[in-house]
Every structure is written in structure tokens, then in C-alpha cells.
Amino acid sequence: MKQVVVHPERCVGCMQCMLACATAHSRSLMLFAAVQETPQPKARIHVGAGCFNEGFPNRCRHCDPAPCQMACLAGAIYRSDSTGTVMINPDRCINCASCAMACPYGVIRFHEDPLGPAGHAIAVKCDNCSARVAKGQIPACVEICKAGALTYEEMDTAMRRKNRAVARSMSTDADPPVMPAGVALLKSIKQSELQLSGS
């Protein structure tokens, strides 16, 4: 089964996945209309700043077993049998934030959501774009990512690719894994800048 695979080393921090995610979870499904909606749709993927201010795309890992599901007071968090996606039933959620305590990745947010009950906040997180996938589309964050930081593929395929890259880098006659020169240059400059921004 395909799933969203995150490659943080590829994230350039443009945050386009956040816009695409919020749009995909709006009523209008169009960016320009979505920003006018009340309540405002919000991203369920969160690009934070890493130690060197590099982008870090943070989204639900759909853990198994899922600590949020075990901690949910209202029994609102469940796993979809067909896709393995950890889902939140917006009508059962009581917005108690017990899942915030449980989630070791900090990916759950609490707000009124266009797709939830009107007038009160609920817990909201990545649903693997189940509505889009049902229509034959791929998750919105993957579709918009132009840097390859988010891919939609079989986990095995992604692992195999990564294993091969590591194996190549460890064989004696191989070149080390190549990071494009411009990317490496900017990265080293940014790290240096960060050290100079205060101490």
C-alpha cells in the first residue's frame, strides 16, 4: 500500500505543502476561495525550523499502535482497516487534548475545522488525504512538493532506494552520495550565519 514518505534532507522549507494541505481540507478545494472560508481550513502538515533553520516537514506517522488512539478519552481516534490511516472522528472528539500529550511528534492541532462540527474546536491531524485518494488523486502535500521531500510510494520501494544509496556510499570505489553543490553551499553558509546570529 502506498503511503506518504518524508525525506527531510530534501525539504527546502517553502511551506507549499502547508498551503496545499489546507486547501485539500477546505470546502471549496481551491486556494483562493479556501482562504476566504469560515472557519479557515488549516494545514495538517507543519513545516518547522530545524536546528539550522532548515525546513522540517512534520506530519502524522500513523503509528501502530498509535499512542493518540490509546490515549483518546472519547474513543474518537480509530484506525481505518482498509488503509491503516489513523483517523479522528470529528463528531466523537471532545477536544480534550489528551492526544497532544500522547503524540511524540507534536502533529495534532486543535481548532474549528471546515470538515468538523460547526462552532467548536476539535483535534485535527493528517488523514493521508483519504478523500483525495478515494478519488484517485495522490495526497496534496506530495503532489505540490517540487523538491522531492514528500513522496507517495510503497514503503518497501522507498526503503530499498535508501538502502541502495547507503550501500553505494559505503562501497569502496563509489563516490559519496552527491548533494548538489549549490544546496551544500547554501547549507554551510546558513549554518555559519546561524552561529553568528547570537551566542
Partner: peptide
């Protein structure tokens, strides 16, 4: 503003 957009930071947007 962190992280700032890498495309823009590299001049690629």
C-alpha cells in the same frame, strides 16, 4: 519566518 523558503533563498523561484 523560519524556515525561510529554500527556492527563494537559492534564487530558484
Amino acid at each position: 519566518q523560519q524556515p525561510q523558503c529554500g527556492f527563494c533563498d537559492m534564487g530558484l523561484s
